[in-house]
């Protein structure tokens, strides 16, 4: 009698647990859809409010006091030039640091310190990079409120992303590859250059794309160095007609950028400016989410195609 009762009890508990599991699974699924829904609503909202503003005129006009005539020409040119500086700073230095830490660095306290330092650097609020750029690049190095100062601030900001991506993709390469290279008489650098970097290009590229997409969307470091001004002109062209055909004057030009232009429009009253903000936001979202999408696909491609 007692064992029958016990069995009955057990059955009840089991079916109750199953019901709980079922309900939690449903709850999780609904919350997941809801969270992803926010992203969809965000995109839809920007599209509804801003899509009608995006046309050739919007892309080829300077900002203006009249909302309907305003455009993002100086903003997207500024963003492009900023990214040139950011990329040429963050990519070589980030990859070099990643290779050094993964392949060369001895296991000692100094290396530990560098690692903790990078972990912390990745979590330093972006606005503090702006303060550093203001104190160091703008005033101490006398770069002024220029593309160079802004690009360097963003370069420092995304450096940890490139370092971590480089290290992670080097770490997945089995040590037999290195040993085979050494056995044939390769120096460490030859092993890195001819073998390890070739295998990790995909992983590093993924990290670089993510880093650039982060830099494109950042506005607070640029606001801190004082970039929020009315810019209705373009920086000097990097290519010129006279020899030596390249000019670096643009590095010291004042600038504006897409997220800053959007911030400027958001903080103005009036629905027309808000439509401009939505349009600039839509462009930003398409660029950053697009780059993230490419990075996800690339990562998957790399994982699938390399089997050790």
């Amino acid at each position: 009698m007692r064992s029958e009762h016990f069995l009955e009890n057990q059955k009840q508990t089991a079916s109750r647990r199953k019901a709980i599991d079922l309900w939690f699974g449903r709850l999780g699924f609904v919350l997941m859809l809801g969270t992803l829904g926010v992203l969809a609503v965000l995109l839809l909202n920007l599209a509804v409010n801003g899509l009608s503003r995006i046309d050739w005129h919007f892309l080829t006009s300077f900002p203006s006091r009249k909302a309907a005539e305003a455009g993002v020409l100086s903003a997207w040119v500024g963003t492009t030039l900023l990214m040139l500086v950011t990329a040429s700073l963050a990519i070589p230095l980030g990859v070099a640091a990643g290779v050094y830490l993964e392949e060369y660095a001895p296991k000692n306290r100094w290396t530990d310190f560098i690692e903790i330092n990078i972990a912390n650097l990745a979590g330093v609020p972006s606005i503090l990079y702006g303060l550093m750029a203001l104190g160091l690049f703008v005033y101490k190095f006398k770069f002024g409120q220029s593309i160079l100062a802004g690009g360097m601030a963003l370069g420092c900001l995304v450096l940890p992303i490139v370092i971590v991506a480089t290290r992670e993709s080097l770490r997945t390469i089995p040590s037999s590859i290195r040993e085979a290279a050494f056995a044939l008489g390769a120096t460490r650098w030859q092993a890195v250059w001819h073998h390890l970097l070739r295998y990790s290009t995909g992983g590093i590229a993924t990290g670089v794309i993510l880093a650039m997409s982060r830099a494109i969307g950042e506005s607070s470091p640029l606001i801190t160095i004082g970039a929020l001004t009315f810019i209705a002109f373009l920086p000097p062209a990097p290519l010129i007609a006279q020899p030596p055909f390249v000019s670096f004057e643009w590095l010291f030009s004042p600038f504006t950028a897409l997220p800053i232009q959007m911030f400027n429009w958001v903080s103005r009253p009036g629905e027309e400016f808000q439509a401009n903000a939505a349009a600039a936001g839509l462009i930003l979202m398409v660029i950053t989410l697009g780059m993230n999408g490419v990075a996800i696909l690339l990562r998957r491609h790399v994982q699938r195609n390399i089997k050790w």
Partner: peptide, 8 residues
């Protein structure tokens, strides 16, 4: 969600 520019 964490890649969306914060100004947006």
């Amino acid at each position: 969600l964490s890649a969306v520019p914060t100004v947006v």
